[in-house]
Structures are given as C-alpha cells and as structure tokens.
Amino acid sequence: MLAARYDALLFDLDGVVYRGDEPVPGAPETIGALRRAGARIVFLTNNSSRTPQQVSAKLGAMGMPSPPEEVVTSATATADLLAARGGGTAFVMGGDGVVGALTDAGLQVLDGEPESVDLVVVGIDDDLTYARLRTACLLVHRGARFVATNADPTFPGPRSELWPGAGALVAAITTATGVEPEVVGKPHAPLFHAALHRAGGTNPLVIGDRLDTDIAGAAALGWDTLLVLSGVDTEEELADSPYRPTYVAADVRALLLDDVVRVTGP
C-alpha cells in the first residue's frame, strides 16, 4: 500500500480527516488501519485556535483516538520558535491554542490595551473584536514584531463552505499598518520540521488538501505529497496550479491502496 513506502505520515486536519465537526468519509477506518500496520502518524495543522489536547479530544470523538503528542499546531511551532529566540512580551489575537502555547513556552502574554509589547502574534480568533484588532495594529505601528501563526485566507467548514482563516485577520493588520508578518505555519518550513521531528522519521509523506500550503511547502523541502480532494482544492485548481503533488486521490483511503494516481507533470 502507498503508506508503507514512507516511514512517517504527516496529516493535515481540516479538509483531510475532518470537515468542521464531521469526519471525512473513510478517515476513521483509514487511520485505524494505518495504526494497526504500525505507521508513524503525526497531525500538523495551520489552525491555531485549539490546543493539542483539544484536537486530540476532537479526533477521539470522531473515532480516531490520537494522543496530544501526535498533534503539532502552528501555535505550538510559533511558540517554540519565539521561545528559542528569547521570548518576550506578546499581545495575542488568537484563541486558547495560541495563548496556551506561548504561555507554556515561557512568553508573557499581555491582554487589554498595553502601551508596548515585543511581539504581536496573530492566529485564528473566534472572539475577534474591533477593539482587539485596533490594539494589534497600534502595537505594530509602535514597533512590535508582527508574527502570524499562519496566513491561510480560509479553512474548510461544514457543507463544503469556506470560512475566513487567520490570513484574513493578518491581511487586515497588514492593510492598516503596511507591515508584512513573519509567517510560521505552512507553507513555511518550521511547522513541517516540527512535525517530522515529532514523528521521528526521515522519509515522510505529507497528506493535505491545499496546493498552496500543504503541497507547496512539503515540495519545497523535497518531500512527497498526497493531495486529497476532500477539502479546499479541486481537480480544476490542480490543473491550473504551479504546485504539483506526488499523488492525487479523492480522500485518505488512498493510503491503503497500491494504485494511487501519480502526478507526473505540470
């Protein structure tokens, strides 16, 4: 089977194993079969709103029991990167996943309307208010380093809907300040490296639904990829895209097959 050709399987979450609060058809059975076969599995996601513990609980509720240690989010990768640089004070526009990751890594998160901070860190924020957006912009104007957990403009919701992602919030701050952020999540390398380190392999396969993040980022590292059409991107978008996956399939059930379609050219 396809999965057996690799020593680590790095799964995106939204649009790959679930959409909103529903599992992608066949995902629970596939993850179970892969575990029985001894596959090394890690989930990596640009969604920064949930902690690894919350993601673990969500997967378990959908019939895919997975320990928090198998979950690497853009928030945890961002926190580890900033802590390695010395940490500092941060104003966060993001959910519990971002705040918790930064706090656990030793950064001081300031709420309210601080006069100054070292960092403005932005992720998906379900509780966004204009006041918090204004504060983030003012702090960037005053010299805070602008860091984004990811820049996805959308993410897949239920009923094939696309909901605004962290990239929409990042764009608002960039528009107001003229400052471009440092982005940690896919397609940038830090999140991929963190996931492979967690898995412990050397020959990974990245499974994702977005050509411009999952596929482009892994391909830039020389890693093989499987594009699944259960999330954001479609066959039509693949035909027009400069980013080429190694394989393409309808969903993750292809990992259990031998005859998966290989993409050979532009």
Rank of each mutant, 00 (worst) to 15 (best):
L44S: 10
V42I: 14
D125P: 01
A37E: 11
A75P: 06
L110S: 01
V71P: 05
L133W: 04
R40V: 01
A136C: 04
S74P: 05
A105C: 06
S116K: 10
P25Y: 14
V140R: 02
I41S: 11
R36A: 15
A33D: 09
T129K: 07
L34F: 15
P23G: 11
R134L: 11
D21V: 09
G95H: 09
L34Q: 09
S116M: 14
P52W: 07
N47M: 08
P52C: 12
T149P: 10
Y18I: 06
V55L: 00
A57D: 15
T45R: 02
G26Q: 02
T51Y: 00
L128V: 12
G143H: 09
A61H: 11
V71C: 02
T89W: 01
G32N: 12
D104F: 06
V140Y: 06
D111H: 14
L44T: 11
G26E: 05
D126V: 11
E22Q: 11
R19S: 05
R134H: 12
I124A: 04
V42S: 06
A105M: 02
L119N: 01
G95Y: 00
G20C: 15
T51A: 10
R142N: 07
A61W: 01
D125Q: 02
A131W: 01
A39W: 08
V99L: 13
D118H: 10
R142E: 02
A39K: 00
S74V: 01
L133Y: 05
G143Y: 13
A148Y: 03
A83E: 06
V122C: 05
A77G: 04
A136N: 02
G20S: 15
V122E: 02
D111E: 13
V72E: 04
M93C: 10
A39L: 14
L139C: 08
L34A: 10
V17G: 08
G123H: 07
T78F: 06
G32H: 10
